[in-house]
Nucleic acid binder design. Structure first.
Lengths: 306, 306
DNA sequence: ATTGTCATTTGTCTATGACAAAAGTCATTA
DNA sequence: TAATGACTTTTGTCATAGACAAATGACAAT
């Protein structure tokens, strides 16, 4: 019978639970002296749960802009102090309704949370719901997670619920079809699909036919998809996760590979920071500018029909 | 200006696209002589799309029971012959409705596809829809993708649409609440959430309150989530992606960390192959056995209320 | 304010050896 | 017959350390 040492974690488990990658963990150990796992009889690393927690905190600080070299070696106490100091603490005017939603969440009142969401959808209508509920709720939960105020699974729960409500809202859309067809996706390395779903709903409200092919689609697959679906436009969503240079490379690739008859819309926090984007791309700086951005497309379509 | 060699894939991309892991790719090359990538100027492997296709086929054969040593070195032609011979090629009675859905997909008729799905939902009712449409459709598209008959983005599109329809179906559920509360998730390394959503819908139809916290939740987070939500049961979904030993390790960890007052249900293709699962776990071998599995829980709940 | 260089930091790749876990083989037992 | 246990082979993952490319920061020049 093998004694199950529950709290001893292998490098694989650590890599999975932190998202750090085995090579990265080993090279941190070599360079910064942390993590500092014990070893099994034959030299395999075994990590303590404390090290896992500390690694999670380090990941959070790195996401906020700290660099590994300056924080990986710090003690837990020092890390905690650093985490407190991080600026990011500006959120002046938050809608009390949104604040209440987050309180429900933290209290584990999921049914009430669901009901409140659908209630807000009915009150505000689909468009208002996107602007006044989804957007701030996502921002606040994201911030709260980064500060460690709510666990990641609550953020996942929110995402689940929001996508359910969006789907329900989509089911109620009764806009007259305009004939415009838009393909939606994100590029590889971008796992967040909520922005795309918000855009999808707004487009449907305008009578646009949408084709959502999920997240992380490589450029050549997008090319193929354009061939198959023959959309009038391709809408891409960028969160803040991806690296600028990677995005630029892929944008150039898109510029070359996507037929020039297809317009390309790009939106999200990851894109508004970029300079020197090819003219090809219509950058949507705020989600409420979407209406404006698709007007030329609708006009073009009408002109072509005549 | 760097020339963009679009079709040359790095080991990382191959690892992602095949699910094979970098170490494994390198050791296959060392031992069996395949894959046999070219190298960049400084020795990094670059794989051709053909090798990717061949690797995908190899993965499929391994899933079907072949062993790496006997197939990795084979040529494409020999692999194809082998794939033909494999039993698994028995899919005699496929519902023509499902077949038609896939044809619509391949033709890019997305609007018709969406309409057909909602039509089937209305016809079959939510329960029938899960058994007779979602399950076979997912299986067929998965198989078709593995055989290279449909591109991955179509599979993603199907996933998107199914989750939309499921959410709509959930919105229409009117079962009387039983008071039973179930937390749903998957373990780290398991990115597929559709199985979980199917279960969620079926549970809601039985008047169960569900809390879906998304995919890939580490065990200690599940522990915390149980503390917050106080569910009567935890339902986990396993696809065929994960390794048996990894699953076993996590199951044991769960067994220890999740309060014994919480029942644990486990379902999906990844779990039914396993032996020596702790008694703790209720294994659901077929999704249509779910009803049976939760009956004891309902009974228990009633008994406790009195 | 943008662009270009340079140094530094950081992550990933490579190679090879070692070994544990899984799977196959085969004899023995109930 | 089928199950059990011991042995062998296969297969995947881990370790080490060097190399280098990609990302970042600092500073100068346009």
């Amino acid at each position: 019978m093998t004694e199950v040492a529950t709290s001893q974690l292998s490098i694989e488990e650590i890599a999975r639970d932190t998202g750090l990658g085995k090579d990265r963990l080993r090279v941190w150990e070599r360079r910064y002296g942390f993590p500092d796992p014990l070893r099994t009889a034959n030299g395999e690393r075994i990590y303590s749960p404390e090290q896992l927690t500390r690694l999670r905190l380090i990941c959070r600080l790195i996401d906020q802009g700290c660099r590994p070299g300056s924080i990986v070696a710090l003690s837990s106490a020092e890390l905690n102090r650093l985490a407190e100091e991080q600026p990011e603490s500006k959120e002046p005017s938050v809608d009390p309704a949104i604040r209440r939603l987050i309180e429900l969440l933290q209290a584990g009142k999921t049914e009430l949370f669901k009901l409140s969401l659908t209630g807000l959808l009915d009150q505000q209508g689909p468009k208002g719901f996107v602007y006044e509920t989804i957007e701030p709720l996502l921002r606040l939960t994201g911030d709260a997670w980064a500060k460690g105020e709510i666990p990641i699974y609550l953020e996942h729960f929110v995402t689940q619920q929001l996508s359910a409500v969006i789907h329900i809202a989509q089911g109620q859309v009764t806009a007259a079809p305009t004939g415009l067809r838009v393909l939606l996706s994100t590029l590889p390395g971008e796992p967040h699909g909520m922005g795309m779903m918000m855009v999808e709903l707004l487009l449907q409200l305008q009578g646009v036919e949408t084709i959502n092919i999920g997240v992380g689609t490589p450029v050549d697959q997008l090319q193929q998809a354009c061939h198959l679906f023959q959309p009038h436009a391709l809408a891409l969503s960028f969160s803040a996760i991806q690296k600028r240079t990677q995005i630029m490379t892929m944008l150039n690739e898109l510029d070359q590979k996507i037929p020039s008859s297809v317009a390309i819309l790009a939106g999200g926090r990851g894109i508004i920071k970029l300079r020197s984007i090819p003219d090809r791309f219509t950058v949507i700086k705020q989600i409420n500018r979407l209406d404006v951005a698709i007007k030329p497309l609708l006009r073009q379509l009408k002109a072509r029909e005549q």
